[in-house]
Design a protein around this nucleic acid. Structure first.
Lengths: 213, 213
DNA sequence: ATAAGTTAACTCACTAGTTCGTACATAGGA
DNA sequence: TCCTATGTACGAACTAGTGAGTTAACTTAT
């Protein structure tokens, strides 16, 4: 039997199912390479319904991006900057970023794809503007504390530090295939995980302590 | 009038022109997004000739990859490791890598695209195997010298160090668009160039000196 | 309570346009 | 005459998107 509201819930579930499948498909094949028919075939619904719910391929793709980014924000909220000394705080943030990239491969692929398209779709979404602000604020506070305590001697910009951490974590996942082909090592294999995780932490700390000059 | 050999030279020039245009087109639109007709229209030749010379879209794409990678190898040969102390040698290598990525945007885009396709095309080309060996050898020698001189205290693996440098340089170019959209800063803009170039050098040096622990 | 009306969710079949690739004819040099 | 190089036209398969009508839940008037 069915109760009132079942239809709405079913529709929401269908929407969510489409989004999940579409995310995997776009991440696997890119925007142009992904097929709407393929996405439809992998769901319990039809292509017509994808158009009914999302309007078109591009809007579906944007919806996927929004979902992926929203799942991801507020990772940095886990860093308890006030109860950690600056060195441990920045190391923790770096390793959290590492873990996060490690756990969200599809998201990484989508970001890489979106860069191929010069971020044209992200720019069409208001939901995704200024999503970076929280991390920058966190890093700024850590940097200030580190300079005050004397732990950090390098004058660094929060955006630059974020870029340094992100680049390491992102590259390891995003470029695993060509890197593996060229150097014969899968950076994402379990046996390299802990070493690289430690490395990203030591890298930022060493840089901020200022031993590079 | 025509001399013997003209035909061959013309054919080579046509091949080269197709490759140039195709490289730009694939870099701009990705593999699936690139259009053979579009590439043909941008050359003085026809689509028929692309198929005549290269056989198909995929073979053309692989030829583009081979050309791009071959243009790129032997950057590291410029680092005169024997006449530089280890600290300056690794810093120089890092900044040379930075310059290189800065100057070859299309190549970066192709690598990113190839990773979306899980390096399936690179693996089909024998030309591109073990292309990474020279840099690793160079880094190994720098690391050995640095440990001997006492400048480096961190025990580091050559591949890891290469990854650290590459990730920074690659990310700055490859992710400029989404990063710009999220943080409101174009990492590739002239006003950030020198600072980031210095940064990558200080980053490796600081890490290898071992201040991170 | 129930008939009539309304709307969201859904199906099926179809189309207009694209895109890779090729068949065929031809030109000109060796 | 034979071979390489090339232009023209075309086709087969694919692909995003739609037109039109159906079903079933919900609402409102009586």
């Amino acid at each position: 039997m069915s109760t009132p509201g079942d239809r709405q819930r079913d529709a929401d579930r269908t929407r969510a199912e489409i989004l999940d499948v579409a995310m995997a498909e776009f991440a696997r094949s890119g925007y142009a390479g992904a097929r709407v028919d393929e996405i439809a075939d992998l769901t319990r619904t039809t292509k017509r319904m994808i158009y009914y719910y999302f309007g078109g391929k591009e809007q579906l793709y944007i919806a996927v991006l929004e979902k992926a980014y929203s799942e991801v924000r507020a990772v940095e909220k886990t860093v308890d900057v006030d109860h950690l000394d600056p060195v441990e705080a920045i190391r923790t943030l770096a390793q959290l970023t590492f873990d996060h990239h490690d756990a969200h491969r599809d998201f990484i692929a989508l970001v890489a794809i979106e860069n191929v398209h010069r971020a044209e779709h992200i720019r069409k979404s208001e939901v995704l503007a200024n999503l970076g602000a929280p991390v920058l604020d966190l890093i700024s506070r850590i940097l200030d504390a580190g300079h005050e305590s004397g732990d950090f001697t390098t004058e660094a910009d929060a955006i630059d530090v974020h870029m340094m951490i992100s680049s390491f974590c992102f590259f390891r996942v995003a470029n695993q295939h060509t890197f593996g082909a060229l150097f014969g090592r899968d950076m994402t294999a379990p046996e390299h995980r802990e070493r690289l995780r430690t490395m990203v932490g030591e890298m930022v700390v060493a840089y901020l302590k200022g031993a590079g000059r």
